[in-house]
Design a binder for these strands. Structure first.
Lengths: 168, 168
DNA sequence: GTGTAAAAAGATATATTATAACATTTTAGG
DNA sequence: CCTAAAATGTTATAATATATCTTTTTACAC
């Protein structure tokens, strides 16, 4: 089991997350002969500003501000598509939003824990679950190609806040 | 493990699926003092015409044809919302589409196997997986409320077709 | 049966998310 | 530098979903 759950849900030096993500991204681009352009890097950086998923139009607004000129939707979606293809970000289907991938090199199919309160998203790779999904698919003669596993609930912090305010 | 996978992927007397689904829906409405209106029943019936997920606007078109008058999106979405709340249908996030639930009474959180070729969707409840998801959440101090588990791949039939045409 | 309040549906407008199509600019490599 | 490919800009529009207000239908009290 591999997860960034602790990092997501506890105070930490977040600049290290961002730098690590950008470094990984550059490595992967180099390895795949892909170009990490200004727009793409900006989108990746924005998605790493927090451990929350951002929608395409939130990214658009922030990009426009960053570049001090209007950025149109296709530009944003192109960058998203590129980063998705390289495995540097994920699409969170239940939110129509996107988030930086903390372990882009792992081939693992991942599981997301989405806080419905604060919007934070932690990612987890769970080999036992993946194995069971594979064998359940096989039993059904279903040829598994990809998966989207999204858990919704409360992150530790939001749960604590909820508990505390209940006691008011 | 409970699944309608065989039913979905093999020829069967589909009218029995539809009738069973409508009967279950009526029971559940009676139990919950909810109204199964014409529109709602029509949407449920349309979603049970096949074992494929339908988008809201596909439903709109089919409803309009069925009632021989234009049906506006809010009407469709209201029916969808109602059926979702009663657990009679599911939303497939990765498709932005909806499908009839084959076991609406079970409290189980379910898993979908989506054929990317023909669009069929089989549903499965897998207690071991659900247990692991719960315990993985607990380990991460994540309070699990709901889940969306969507597997994409090839259903048995489409896989067979693909194999066969490979040999041409 | 009629009146009434609540629920549902109709109607219109618009928000949100995503893509198509074509023009222009930037980039890597010859 | 020149060129082809890649990336981005620009404009328009498709696809999905919701807000708001009006009208109709329904359950049920009387």
């Amino acid at each position: 089991m591999l997860t960034n759950s602790r990092l997501v849900h506890q105070p930490h030096d977040h600049s290290r997350c961002i730098n690590a993500a950008l470094a990984r991204a550059n490595d992967i681009c180099a390895a795949k002969n892909a170009r990490m352009t200004t727009t793409r890097e900006a989108v990746l950086r924005l998605l790493w500003q927090s451990h929350k998923a951002l929608g395409a139009y939130q990214l658009q607004a922030q990009l426009s501000e960053l570049f001090n000129k209007p950025i149109a939707p296709p530009t944003v979606y192109r960058a998203i598509e590129f980063l998705l293809e390289l495995g540097l970000i994920h699409r969170i289907h239940s939110l129509n939003a996107y988030i930086g991938c903390p372990f882009p090199n792992s081939e693992h199919s991942n599981l997301f824990m989405i806080c419905t309160q604060c919007g934070s998203v932690a990612e987890m790779t769970h080999n036992t679950i993946n194995g069971l999904l594979q064998s359940a698919s096989e039993k059904a003669n279903f040829t598994l190609k990809s998966q989207s596993l999204e858990l919704s609930g409360l992150c530790p912090q939001c749960f604590d806040h909820a508990e505390t305010s209940d006691n008011d």
